[in-house]
Simulated assay, not measured.
Amino acid sequence: MSKVLFLGPVGTYSHQAVIQQFPDEELIPAASIPECFERLVSSTEMDYAVVPLENSTNGQVVFTYDLFRDFMELDQNPRLEVVGEQYVDIAHCLISPVKLSVDQLKNVDVVYSHPQVWGQVKDYLTSFDKKYGKTSKIDCSSTSGAVERCLNEYEASGKITLAIGSRVSASLHKGTIVDSDINDIKGNTTRFLVLKRRDGFNKIASQSLPPNGDETKVNFVTFVINQDNPGSLISVLNVLREQDLNMCSISSRPFHNHTQSERKWQYCFFIEFYDKSDIDYELLIESFDQHCERWIHWGRFYRNALYYQIS
């Protein structure tokens, strides 16, 4: 049985993602995204880790992007690779410790949730506050932790607060769903990556989980360009055009190059592009070596079938 790390605690959307990918394996919650990376690298007992990468409403999960960046900065022979992806529909619920009357709802003055959630339910909470009275929004480390805090406070003192989380977290902590599907934008989805410890070092990562209804493969690469001259980024992207490779995403994060301390501003770019049966990886390696100060191919993995589903 494989041991799989995920961003805990149980009852989170990360927990749902890891169950979707590994329903029959031993699932181990970690306290943070960095812990998922570090334990997978350092412990041979751990086989995989599942971490959030981006949300269709809020964009990048910067903690994850920055860990890929930092791994590249410290070591260009990475000890991890991406072997798969998962997609989880984020359907938030307003949760209370007990069933509440309208008068009780008017007396509630605190709502707990993860910081990223507030931007996903802004309109709903504005309407809620107008109807029942102003509430304070208090951050928790996870949506499941928010529900747990709400229930624990009621058990300890009888104080009624609310939390925003998933149906799974409400069921797990025996909370009551006041309102469901409260997202301002329907179809809100979070994308997760599946990580595995890399066996040795190859310029092109080769491991991947079996396909899930789709034979399309995605390549995930990070790089820093050699210089800031006009056209430097285009020179790298032309590497893809020359082989007729379709880039499906690009983003960037600030990069501090410790070897060139006089440069305070530099960027690490993240690109994904679809695979082809006739791709010339030797030429790709040669071109990236020529145009990039440093680069890492993190994975070549199958596109998950859930990518195409619209909620």
Rank of each mutant, 00 (worst) to 15 (best):
Y132T: 04
Q86K: 09
L74P: 09
F270C: 10
S157E: 15
T44N: 15
A305M: 14
F270G: 05
S56Q: 00
D75I: 03
F220C: 05
I185Q: 13
L125Y: 02
Y267Q: 09
T216C: 00
I225A: 03
E85D: 05
I234F: 08
V10E: 12
S261T: 03
A49D: 10
V168A: 06
N183E: 03
E215H: 10
A91V: 15
I90D: 00
L67S: 14
E54Y: 10
Y65H: 13
V61A: 00
T44K: 05
D289M: 08
F255I: 05
K106Y: 05
R303W: 08
H114E: 15
L80H: 11
K99Y: 06
C36L: 05
K264I: 04
T176Y: 06
N212D: 07
E272C: 12
N107L: 12
D184P: 06
E85N: 04
H256S: 09
D275L: 13
D184G: 03
G145W: 14
Q290F: 05
V194H: 01
Y87V: 00
Q266Y: 02
S42H: 15
S166Y: 00
S252E: 11
E153M: 13
I250A: 13
I250M: 05
T44Y: 10
K137V: 03
F22D: 03
R149C: 06
P97K: 00
S136P: 04
C36W: 14
R197E: 07
V168I: 12
T57E: 03
T222M: 01
T259A: 12
V88I: 05
C268E: 11
N58H: 08
S14P: 04
V62L: 09
L233F: 05
Q104G: 04
Y87T: 11
I95W: 01
H173D: 15
I33E: 03
Q266A: 01
Y65E: 12
K106A: 03
L53S: 02
D123H: 12
E272S: 12
S43E: 15
S2N: 13
D75Y: 04
V221L: 10
T161H: 12
R79M: 06
Q266G: 00
L283E: 15
A156I: 08
T57N: 07
D103K: 11
R191V: 09
V4C: 07
L80N: 07
R198K: 14
P34G: 10
T259C: 10
K217W: 07
K264D: 15
I138T: 12
V83F: 04
S232G: 08
T12A: 08
E73C: 14
N257R: 09
A163D: 11
E293D: 15
E272I: 11
G8K: 15
E54L: 06
G187W: 11
V82D: 10
V98L: 07
P9A: 13
A49I: 02
F288V: 01
I234P: 02
L100A: 11
S277I: 04
V102H: 03
E54P: 02
N152M: 14
R167P: 14
D103C: 09
E286T: 10
E25I: 04
Q104C: 09
I285K: 08
N55A: 01
V98M: 06
I95H: 00
R241G: 11
Q86N: 13
I234R: 09
Q86G: 03
L162W: 12
F288A: 06
E148Q: 07
S32V: 12
P230T: 04
S56E: 00
S311M: 11
E26F: 01
V110W: 00
S277R: 05
S261N: 03
F201V: 14
